[in-house]
Design a binder for these strands. Sequence first.
RNA 1: GCUCCGAUAGUGUAGCGGCCAAUCAUUUCGGCCUUUCGAGCCGAGGACUCGGGUUCAAAUCCCGAUCGGAGCACCA
Length: 500
Amino acid sequence: MSEIAPDLLDELNEKRTPDKGLPPLECTDHVVMRFAPNPNGPATLGSARGIIVNSEYAKRYHGRFIIRFDDTDPKTKRPLSDAYNWYLEDCRWLGAEPDEVIIASDHIEMYYDYARQLIEKNAAYICFCEKDEFKKYKDSAVACPHREQDINTTLENWQDMLDGKYAPEKAVLRIKTDMLHKDPAIRDWVAFRIVDTPHPRPEIRDRYKVWPLLDFESAIEDHLLGITHIIRGKDLIDSEHRQRYVYKYFNWKYPETLHWGRVKIHEFGKLSTSSMSKAIKEGKYTGWDDPRLPTLRAMRRRGMQPEAICKFFIELGVGETDIGLSMENLYAENRKVVDQTSKRFFFTPEPVKLIIRDAPVTVAKPMLHPSHRNWGNRLISVAGNVLISKSDAEKIKENELLRLKDLYNIKILKKTAEVITAEHIGGGIEIVRKKKGKIIHWVVPDGPNITVLNVTGEEKGIGERGISDCAGEVVQFERYGFVRIDSVKDNKVTAYFAHK
RNA sequence: GCUCCGAUAGUGUAGCGGCCAAUCAUUUCGGCCUUUCGAGCCGAGGACUCGGGUUCAAAUCCCGAUCGGAGCACCA
């Protein structure tokens, strides 16, 4: 077959190769995609999915990628001034530089204008019902008394609303959909409400009392920006149904949509932006970049690499089912990157003394990276007195033969809770290998104090001298894991744990 | 309660009528290699929610059940 029809064979083989990652889009001309966060906190791993996937599609089809801040709720999900820039930093870090940045709160008057047009089309009305009252109408599919108000009166009421004549919760602008729509979620939804809390942006502050809700703001923006494809969480599926009414009134074409399910990461559980914010204020976390948090700022501080995060989310695809993930998957991706680029060092948490009798004074020369011989070696002078990790010490038995990695073989003589005594034994690694002895790491006692901050707390110990020169770098503590050296001060090093 | 949606190995995915005794990644377990319990290499294990139907043929189509999720906010 390979001789008579090689093409056919290729085709067969090709069909067997699975489609990895993102499915192709329909309508691939002039692709414009957006990611529209509320900047009420920094980007998290969840945001990263939105940033990466939207941006990746835009790149793939030579289109444009827009970041739009949907910051139209000054009260309930109040934006955080710093978060606007944080988002942009994080996008850049992920290699998803936006072609354009839009801030919804800059466009409030424009939304007012479209609202007026809808009123004039008899497609919207001012509703004075109380929340609960309207819910009753909605649930029984009956129009409320304000729905049939004439256009001129509605225009006057709208102006009164803008002029601040109504208190919060006294009036809203609703979009007329269909009170008989079988899904109650779609019936006459609210487009604008009154909020008297000032906006956090200094240039806005108390300029507006009437604020649009997501469905309205997003509907108008998506059209004006020429968005061709929207990819977002499936919690916004009903949004599309609501927004289509606005599109119909204006005769606009709705973008293609794709939705994904909820992502729950086992290690972090349910951490909403607002609950994190609260916990930080209470002092439960040191800040938004606390290593126990799923923010991108925290990931960066721990030494997670942007390319690993990107690869991870692209291969995840865009399924609509809800998924539960373990960070292990992301760690595996990151390990592939950092393993090749990280220097190796020894670090002994909760060190235990090990005294070696008859030890020659010598210099150990472990490699900086086992597969990059040309990186050179660390040089460690050893006199016969070292420290080992408590976890290793606990497993050690008297008379055991073991090897101090890159140093020499020893035989354990005596073990107490505080100190272990051993004697030096000549010979190479083969002896230990042959007897299936352990090879453990060690440090000399005068190394820097190291604190490793991890997802559950912290660990303290002693490390190699060379670690002090690695501030900002991701290194591997051998047999311990990958960490990012966060700061070095005097003889104290703080490291953020990434993963094993 | 009302309206939608989904269900493939431990986890996440591919497949969407015949290439499927089901893909790929990760995880797990062996072995090799290695002065790390890291990486690499080799190998193994592990899944179509259930019940009916349509069809010569179903993971793929239809119906029902079960389970899970989302929306029904003057949040995004």
